[in-house]
């Protein structure tokens, strides 16, 4: 099942609606990376509240996605990682490294606002 991507002002919001297969994840990554350019977005939020598993593949894909988005000039925030999932990820040894995280959509938006505030590249 593919993930709907919403445009909200300067940001793109992708809310995962069901468990994702590898192909779904790769498609999400590619869609987001191309839309960021298309809409000249400054921030991307990926809401993973629904996911009850984040394995090495998912983590690697989200990480590389954030990296690509950064190269295209936008910031990424992953929001909604569940307590159990966070626990499982660290046990597995997974890290999101430099990718920003927030509790939920609301906090994610606040984080993007604070980070892109004063960002005057478009004057």
């Amino acid at each position: 099942m593919s993930v709907p991507i919403l445009k909200q002002g300067d940001y793109l919001i992708a809310s995962v609606q069901s468990e994702l297969s590898d192909a779904d994840l790769l498609k999400l990554r590619d869609d987001l990376v191309s839309r960021v350019g298309e809409f000249r977005s400054r921030g991307v939020i990926v809401d993973v509240t629904i996911l009850d598993v984040m394995d090495s593949f998912a983590t690697r894909t989200l990480r590389s996605m954030a990296h690509m988005i950064m190269l295209r000039g936008a910031k990424t925030v992953i929001v909604g990682i569940q307590p159990e999932v966070a626990f499982s990820m660290v046990q597995l040894g997974l890290k999101l490294e430099s990718v920003a995280t927030a509790l939920d959509l609301e906090e994610g938006l606040a984080l993007l606002d604070s980070q892109t505030k004063g960002d005057t590249r478009r004057g």
Binding site: D52, V53, D55, E84, F87, S88
Partner: peptide
């Protein structure tokens, strides 16, 4: 529920 997530992962 935590263990379920560990097992699924």
């Amino acid at each position: 529920s935590t263990e379920l997530t560990l097992i699924a992962t």
